[in-house]
């Protein structure tokens, strides 16, 4: 068994977005804090969002409560990364 280095919250969010949307490494590397998510990306439906939240919990070892999830969270890539960073610090 060997452990790999821990992911930063931003790297984890980027990796999960890449997996959900089926993007290449280069495409997902172009995401900036201002990149719009919910509404702008049709693949990001409620089922994909459910998978995203659980996968982030798993990869970052955090717990996300119902009342922490609202539309604003998925407005931009920056919002989602900021949320993940906040949860990891908790």
């Amino acid at each position: 068994m060997h452990n790999k280095v821990e992911l930063t919250p931003e790297a984890a969010v980027r990796a999960v977005m890449r997996d959900i949307l089926g993007l290449s490494q280069e495409q997902v590397a172009e995401f900036t804090a201002e990149t719009e998510l919910f509404g702008a990306l049709p693949e990001l439906d409620s089922m994909a969002v459910a998978g995203l939240l659980t996968e982030l919990e798993d990869r970052l070892d955090i717990m996300i409560e119902d009342d922490e999830v609202d539309g604003e969270l998925f407005e931009t890539f920056g919002n989602l990364v900021a949320f993940a960073e906040m949860k990891v610090r908790e």
């Binding site: 959900i20 089926g22 994909a48």
Partner: peptide, 9 residues
């Protein structure tokens, strides 16, 4: 590879 179980389609 990528996590196909997360893929929207």
């Amino acid at each position: 590879g990528s996590a196909l179980w997360l893929r929207a389609e």
